[in-house]
Design a protein around this nucleic acid. Sequence first.
DNA 1: AATGAATGAGCCTTCATTCAT
DNA 2: AATGAATGAAGGCTCATTCAT
Lengths: 199, 199, 199, 199
Amino acid sequence: MPSNIRVPQQERSIEKKNKIIQAGYELFSEVGYYGTNTAEIAKRAGVSTGIVYGYFEDKRDILINVLEIYIDRVYEPLAHLMENASRPVDLHKLALSIVDKTIELHEQNAKLHNTLHSLATTDEAVNTQFINLENKITEQMSGQLMKLGVNSANLTEKVHLAMNIVQSYAHETVFDSHSYIDYAAMKDIVCKILVELFR
Amino acid sequence: MPSNIRVPQQERSIEKKNKIIQAGYELFSEVGYYGTNTAEIAKRAGVSTGIVYGYFEDKRDILINVLEIYIDRVYEPLAHLMENASRPVDLHKLALSIVDKTIELHEQNAKLHNTLHSLATTDEAVNTQFINLENKITEQMSGQLMKLGVNSANLTEKVHLAMNIVQSYAHETVFDSHSYIDYAAMKDIVCKILVELFR
Amino acid sequence: MPSNIRVPQQERSIEKKNKIIQAGYELFSEVGYYGTNTAEIAKRAGVSTGIVYGYFEDKRDILINVLEIYIDRVYEPLAHLMENASRPVDLHKLALSIVDKTIELHEQNAKLHNTLHSLATTDEAVNTQFINLENKITEQMSGQLMKLGVNSANLTEKVHLAMNIVQSYAHETVFDSHSYIDYAAMKDIVCKILVELFR
Amino acid sequence: MPSNIRVPQQERSIEKKNKIIQAGYELFSEVGYYGTNTAEIAKRAGVSTGIVYGYFEDKRDILINVLEIYIDRVYEPLAHLMENASRPVDLHKLALSIVDKTIELHEQNAKLHNTLHSLATTDEAVNTQFINLENKITEQMSGQLMKLGVNSANLTEKVHLAMNIVQSYAHETVFDSHSYIDYAAMKDIVCKILVELFR
DNA sequence: AATGAATGAGCCTTCATTCAT
DNA sequence: AATGAATGAAGGCTCATTCAT
């Protein structure tokens, strides 16, 4: 971190930095990274244009911070679910809860997810963060599943794949773009696949 | 189509239009839509900036044309695979061929896919095209599977989901980002899921 | 005139040149000089873009030709009116006929007149042509009036001024912009001024 | 007024905005609206290109502001003259002063006047402003004349026409384009017409 | 720390003019 | 003579970033 970027110690400052991140979060969600300009971020955060560069190196730096928040918001609830599952595990119930939570998270973050994901293509740091998130989730879930007595071969691969499947389904159902799809039926199929995977 | 946009009839002109689309294809892949400027597209296509606007309404119009090409490049090979499957169908073999082909396609188009997918969030036409592609693939595959004697309940939902799973896996394996994942093992799991789905 | 500009001898060619001028005439009238592009002139004239530069040096050269036509269209009818006035002259009737004809001409050419007049500010040749037109009209009218026995002092100045007054009035009445003005009453006043001037 | 355009409150800002308007005023006068580009306006105003769009919506908005200034510069001196005329009114003296002042104004503003007038053809707002100016002048003068005891029939029409005549004369004399015209004699004629009108 | 005015590089697009055919 | 595709300079405007206060 370059020396001319303040690391805010005072509470007031931290609050202000967070406001900027939150404004970025919202705007990147609503109109994408390239549809957002720094003036607007500042305005929504209730600060001046100039001070944004007191807290962040550049516009991309705001994005990186938004990404961190995004990661927490996605990771924590899922980790929480896994931690609260009790033995003996009811795989179907667990699957369902994961699916539902993922849908909920997607409803709140889908657009930002797209935006971030696309930027990962051209921005190494963004890409790395995404990979780390997946690593973290996979690791945490594998660990919890083992604790719950699930002990199948290639557990890591299965967890990883399972998360992908759930993600795909959540994306589908949130955007609800295909009129001919029965999303409820699809949800059942997804859950069955998950149960089958870890039985 | 606005009247002042040439619809190239001469071969030379069609060739030139295609060169511009190809240049757009490459650049949007490499540095994204917003990282590309029209001058660069023209330069790579070996034409002047001005003539680009003889063939396309604006920069976005190039994107739309790139998207069309992309869709063909993704759809045709998969449709081809399905059409050439013979009865009695060997589901495992079919699944494997679909997975391998999708990987291949992903290797060629993954970055562009990300770029396009992200733009779908802000551009209605792009979004529609994506949805149409999915519709087309789902429809074609369902139809072929039925011809092959696969007659399971909720076939459409299963096909749709199956494609998502394959996509996810292809994405994973192409980017190969997670060192702890055994992608070969994962492939087996994917194929098994697919076989299970349609048995 | 530079050597690479054709002076069309063949009838077909002359016709084509006139079509271009006419197209320019219309477009400059409708949307002004800067609102018209050469491609559109060519299109409306039913010729190719390229050939325009076979007949004209540049866009401005078309304007100059349009200006010439305009001058004829404005000059001839007025000259005709003066030539047909018979002795002893009925000044009021003559004034009225001049006013009415000027209104008619203004209805057809007002927008082009504005466009041309404004360009006169920055284009010496256009300016000169305008001055010449005024000279021609003033000269012709003075001459005719003398023939008709009008022999007042400062005849030239009066004629010139008279034409300006009639022009102003015609402009006013054609655009009819001021709701509180009784244009019929104004016309009477104009005619009275004219009669008074030359009595 | 759109929210992203600064309404300068600070003196420094107002000064800067005025500088831009003044630069526009000069350049539009010298080379017309289409002969001027925003970079040049900025340069002459001593500011950057970007900040121009901090004070004005677009190039046309500068024109609108220039127009407003122009209107004030033309209206105020004439209104002042009328207000200062004392009873019993010496019509000839008043006419002469109006003519002289109009000439003076024309000397300063003639080219801009042409530019603006021509744009009125294609720009509704510009047109409206011009009409309003004429309305204002006509109204003010009629009112003052009545106060001075001038009470002729069709006063409004006469005032309007009178202003047109004076304008025409001023234009003529300022550009002094016709060598055969005795502008001094013409001025006498104009004044006589005016006196006659309101006697 | 904070403001918001100011900068200026860069982008998309247009269009008068030229050129290969 | 004619076509219309092609050129490329130029213009209006945006916006990430800096700077005077």
